[in-house]
Amino acid sequence: MKLNLKKPLIVFDLETTGLDIVNDRIIQLSYIKVYPDGKEERESLFMNPEKPIPAMVSDLTGITDEMVKNAPTFKERSSYLNEKFKGCDFAGYNSNHFDIPVLAEEFFRAGIDFDFSKCRLIDAQTIFHKMERRNLAAAYKFYCGRKMEEDFEAHRADQDTEATYRVLQGELDKYNPATAEEPDRALPNDMDVLAEFSKLNDNVDFAGRIVWQDMKGKDGNVLLDSGGKPRRQEVFNFGKYKGWVVSDVLHRDPGYYSWMLASEFTADTKQVLTRIRLREFNKKSN
């Protein structure tokens, strides 16, 4: 099914030196940029991680130190990728849990403030797990009717990207509201709905250190905005201030902000906290 897009969608996959969001680095980034008119652009980029690729990762992906030693670093490609990705939504497989946080860290280290909070983040794995609960290979067979190994080489970002794109299209075909046999297993071809459906939690930052919480009045009832939706606020989800409203903590204990910036939190968490702090400062100034 052709995707119903209002702005470009980046369908992408990463291969990295490991699974540590903060310390590991991208070695391959592949994406398909799908435009609202249906035009597609594909690119697969190797990157020098500036650190050795573990043998286990090379065995899994087939990507070696030799293959990336002369490739540009992410920082060297960052301005180019920033321009390519600006104004786009993103889709991947397990991307909301891993690929998007890793990409956010890489942009931050490169000195680029790429604000993913302004993007719709669609995770084909979350859609699949909520509907069928299996891995990418099973998803490919289920939605595309073929074994993945018949069409692709496993554990290569460009191959997995193509498979993910086909799975996402297959999901929209299968759960098309016009043809779905069960109304509760229907998904409209709408990026807003798919992004909302892809969410597994109410995290404000990718690591879940700060989460959204409904605001309540003195009577204990949830406060609503002008559109009838619950008003929400950011609260800490860890440590001594767990459950506290972030803005209240920043006013009550200003040193907590400095402590978090100096501690081993992800760059994304620190960015989110800084944006909240600036927002509160501007409120006070006005």
Rank of each mutant, 00 (worst) to 15 (best):
D192V: 11
M191P: 03
S247N: 08
V249F: 06
Y143H: 10
R109S: 08
K2T: 12
M47V: 11
F74P: 02
G227S: 11
L136K: 05
L29W: 03
K118D: 11
L19P: 03
L278D: 15
P8M: 07
K2Q: 15
D202G: 02
D113L: 11
I27H: 03
I53G: 04
L250G: 12
F90N: 07
Q233G: 13
N221L: 07
L273S: 06
V272H: 04
K284I: 12
E234H: 07
R133P: 00
F98D: 01
N201D: 15
I27E: 07
I210L: 11
Q28E: 15
A124W: 07
S285G: 00
D24W: 06
R185W: 12
D123Q: 09
P254W: 09
V249E: 04
Y35L: 14
K242C: 13
K7S: 10
V11L: 13
K199T: 12
F236K: 03
K6D: 15
F142Y: 15
E162Y: 02
I210N: 00
E15I: 09
Q169V: 10
D151V: 01
G38W: 08
V11M: 10
I53L: 03
R166V: 08
R77K: 13
F152G: 08
H251W: 07
I63N: 02
K84Y: 06
F98L: 11
D65V: 01
D214Q: 09
G170I: 03
F46S: 06
Y80E: 13
R232W: 01
F281P: 00
A207N: 12
T274D: 15
F265G: 04
R231Y: 02
G227K: 12
R156H: 01
C119Q: 05
D268C: 05
S79W: 01
Y165E: 05
